[in-house]
Design a binder for these strands. Structure first.
Lengths: 228, 228
DNA sequence: ATCACGATATGATAATTATCATGACATGAC
DNA sequence: GTCATGTCATGATAATTATCATATCGTGAT
C-alpha cells in the first residue's frame, strides 16, 4: 500500500494520507523520485521550468536569486518539514529563484502534474496545501520585513537568533552560511558582517570559533535584534 | 440566481462561478456584505480575529504593520482585483497586519467559514485560490527583496515606477501616499524621501506639483531604479 | 479672518554603512 | 611540500543615510 513512501516524519506524506484514499496515495508515492545533493550543489535553478514538486527530506538549503550584476540575494533558508517548492510553484511556469544545498541534502520529488490533478479533484488536499503555502509565505514576508527595518547590528543579531531558535534549536551551532552568504541574506557587505560579529565577540555576546558560534548572552543579543 | 453578486468585474465572483454550481454560488453571494470606508479609515486591524474573507471592490488600500516603537511599516498597496485578505487568512487565526483605505474604498466581505467549507469540498475552487495566493505572495516577496537591495534613490525610483505602471497606468498621477508613508514603505526617513524627490525634480526626472507627480524622464528613472 | 497643526522642504551635522586596501589563515590543486 | 584561491579579519577613508533644527506651505477648526 505504501511502496514508495517509506520515509518517517514526512509531513507531506501525512498530508496526502489524511486526504487521499489508498489508491491515490499510492499513485503519488510510486511516482516519487528521491535525489541526493552534496553541499554546494544546485537543486533548482532560477528560470527553469517547474515540473516537479520538491520536498526537502533531509539537509538544509538556501533559496536565493541573482540580480543582473551577479550578486546573490538569499530569500530564506529551509530545513526538512518546510516545503522547498513554494514561491511560484502554483502560480508560475518558471522558478523565479534558485535553491542550493547548504548541507548534504535529499529531496523527494513528485510530479507537479499529479499534485495538480489530485488537488483539483480533492478539496481537502488543496485546502491543506493552501494553508501550508499561506503559512510559509507569511513567514517569509514577515522575516523580510523584519530584516528590512533593522540596522546592521540588529540584522546580524536577528540572523543569529534565527539560526539558534529556528534552525538548530541550540545556543551553540555551526554557521551554515559563510560571512559572505550572511551578508547576502541580510543585505549588507561581507566586511560589515565580520566586523559586527567581531564586535559581538568583544562585547562578550558571542564566542566564535571559526564557523562555530556560541551565544553567550542571549538577552543582550535579543535586545540588539529588537532594538536595531 | 445571483441576488447578491451583481458587481461587474469581480474576479472573485468569476472564480466562484467557474467552480461552483448555482446553488453554492448563491450561498456565497447571498451571504456577502459590502462595507464602505472613507479615506484613512481602518479596514482590518492587526491582532484581531480573522472571520471574513475581504475582497477589495473599489478604491485603494495599504497593508501595514506597526512595530513596538509605533512606527508603521507598509507591506504593500492593493487595488481592486487583488485580494486584501491574503497573508495569514488561511494559515492563522489572527491578522498579523492592518489594512486602511488610501482612497474611499468598498470591500466585499464573505464569511470565512463559507469559503473554508466550499474549498474543502471543491478541489478546483481551492486550487484556484491556491494559485491566486501563491501569485500574490510571490509578488510581495519579490517586491520586498527588490526594495531591500536598493539604495535610497533606487527605492524612491522603484516606488514611483510601481505607482506609474502597476497602480495608475500613467506617467502622471497623484501620489496616494504622503512622503512619510512613502518612507514607511521603503524603509527610509521622511526627510530623505523629500530630498530624493527634490533631487529628481532638479535633475529634470520629475515634475512635482504637491501630490501630483509627472515622470518627465522615465528612462532615467528606470535606470536609477535598476542600478540603485 | 486667525490660529494650530501636520505635511513639505532644506540645511548642518552626526551616525551608519560601503568601499578600498592589506594581511593572516585555511584549504584544495598540483 | 608550494602555489593559488577564497574566506576571515581589521583599518582607513569615502559615501550614504539618519538626526536635529528650522522654515514654509496648506488645510481644517474656530
Amino acid at each position: 500500500m505504501d511502496p514508495g513512501c517509506t520515509c518517517e516524519l514526512c509531513e507531506l506524506k501525512e498530508l496526502f494520507f489524511l486526504n487521499l484514499n489508498a489508491e491515490n496515495a499510492n499513485l503519488i508515492c510510486s511516482g516519487k523520485i528521491e535525489k541526493t545533493f552534496s553541499q554546494g550543489e544546485v537543486i533548482l535553478k532560477e528560470g527553469t521550468m517547474i515540473q516537479e514538486f520538491t520536498y526537502l527530506k533531509s539537509g538544509l538549503v538556501k533559496l536565493f536569486r541573482r540580480d543582473p550584476s551577479g550578486r546573490e540575494q538569499i530569500i530564506t533558508i529551509a530545513r526538512p518539514m518546510d516545503y522547498v517548492s513554494l514561491l511560484s510553484v502554483f502560480s508560475g511556469k518558471l522558478y523565479n529563484y534558485s535553491v542550493s544545498a547548504l548541507e548534504d541534502s535529499v529531496t523527494c520529488n513528485l510530479k507537479m502534474e499529479d499534485i495538480r490533478t489530485l488537488a483539483n479533484s480533492n478539496g481537502k488536499l488543496a485546502f491543506n496545501l493552501l494553508q501550508k503555502m499561506s503559512a510559509i509565505a507569511d513567514t517569509i514576508i514577515l522575516e523580510s520585513l523584519e530584516i528590512r527595518k533593522k540596522n546592521l547590528k540588529g540584522r546580524v543579531a536577528y540572523l543569529l537568533i534565527y539560526f539558534s531558535r529556528t534552525i538548530f534549536f541550540s545556543e551553540e551551532f555551526d554557521l551554515p552560511l559563510s560571512r559572505k552568504e550572511m551578508a547576502d541574506y541580510v543585505g549588507m557587505t561581507t566586511e560589515n558582517v565580520i566586523r559586527t560579529l567581531s564586535e559581538f565577540r568583544k562585547d562578550g555576546i558571542l564566542k566564535i570559533y571559526g564557523k562555530t558560534i556560541q551565544i553567550a548572552n542571549m538577552d543582550m543579543l535579543q535586545s540588539i535584534s529588537d532594538f536595531g
